[in-house]
Amino acid sequence: MDPFSSALIAALDRVRPAVVHIYAATPKTGQVALGTGVILDHYHIISTAQIVAPEDEITIKTADGKRRRAECIGVDPLYFLTVLQVEERLPHDPPTFAPDGTTPVGLFVAAVGYALGQEHTAASGIISSSDRTVYRPKARGRGNLPVDGLLLTSAAIHPGNAGGPLIDLEGRVVGINGIPWQGGLSLAIQASVAARVASQIIDYGYAVHPWLGFSGEVDVIDDIWVEMLNLPTDRGLVVQHVASDGPGRRAGVQEMDMIMAVGDRQPVLSTGMIRKLLSTRRYGDQVPMTVLRQGELIELRLPVEEIPGLDRFDPVSDDDESAAPDDDED
């Protein structure tokens, strides 16, 4: 057997004990959905709301062939991740979730699960685009919802393996397969994002999805100005628009400000990066933000607030998808 195939088979063997088959029955209609989940810890499983709804009667089958009852304890309205909980401790250890920043373009991956209801399927490919943001139109009202931390992959995501893991050749989970607004694209949620969302649902009952109330573009500063002003980095996000009633306005952000760093001095490369940093906090927190304004560095405090209208968010069809960036901060 060639080395490449051997490495892939070994990676599949490593992750397989952490992959579960899900059967979800809707009591009112009797409709049954089949899909895949991945073990987060010994009592919780991550899957997708394409398969499981809170009112469903859920059965999971683990790698040892044993069936167990599970309960849906939360569905995230932005990523449509769902978290299942079992009463009996799962006998299999969770897989390794790849940390943020370890899924470069070109990384070889495999989408694992129970595609079309079949046992232990895999579809291979590469990461085509990493840390991607997709903008979805709100179900009601104007504006878009930014969905950060997505992976575009050439690995085929079939009905049935959505909710399962996207793995690398080390057997690490680099993403969770499939989102319902993918519009023909094979998209996965970064493992670090999925783990954060699921853990917050378990701990708080909801996941944190902040908005900024401003938008802009990243620009580079000449080295001589970096040295003269003793700047923390040579680039930042130039604010082009500030919403009239949003966290940015309340923090004092102005148009033409250059945001240099957020939180613990992490440089800013996109609005999505700022949202990801804020998502690790709680609503109501005030996060320090370093801003360059007219040649002077100042510090503002950006409040962590929920995206408006998120609780009214409903699934929409692929035909309604808007994958092109738009002003999501109005």
Rank of each mutant, 00 (worst) to 15 (best):
D2H: 08
S6T: 13
A11R: 13
R16S: 15
P17W: 04
V20Q: 00
V20K: 00
A24G: 11
A25C: 08
T26R: 15
T29G: 12
V32M: 10
V32N: 12
G37M: 11
D41K: 06
S47G: 07
I51H: 00
V52M: 08
D56H: 14
E57F: 01
K61L: 05
D64E: 10
D64G: 03
P77A: 11
L84V: 01
P91L: 12
P91W: 12
H92G: 10
P99I: 11
V105Y: 00
V109K: 14
V112D: 11
V112Q: 15
Q118G: 00
H120E: 15
A122K: 09
V134E: 04
R136K: 02
P137F: 02
L145F: 09
D148S: 06
N161I: 01
R172G: 06
V173P: 03
V173M: 07
I176F: 02
P180Y: 07
Q182Y: 02
L187N: 02
A191V: 11
R196W: 07
S199D: 04
I202Q: 04
G205Y: 13
H209T: 01
V218I: 14
I221L: 11
D222C: 03
I224N: 01
I224G: 01
V226Q: 03
M228W: 00
N230G: 12
G236P: 01
V239C: 04
V239G: 03
A251I: 03
M256S: 10
A261Y: 06
T271C: 13
G272V: 14
R275H: 15
R281F: 11
Q286D: 09
M289Y: 04
V291Q: 02
R293Q: 12
E296F: 00
E299G: 09
E299D: 13
E306M: 13
G309F: 10
L310Q: 09
F313C: 04
E321W: 02
D326P: 02
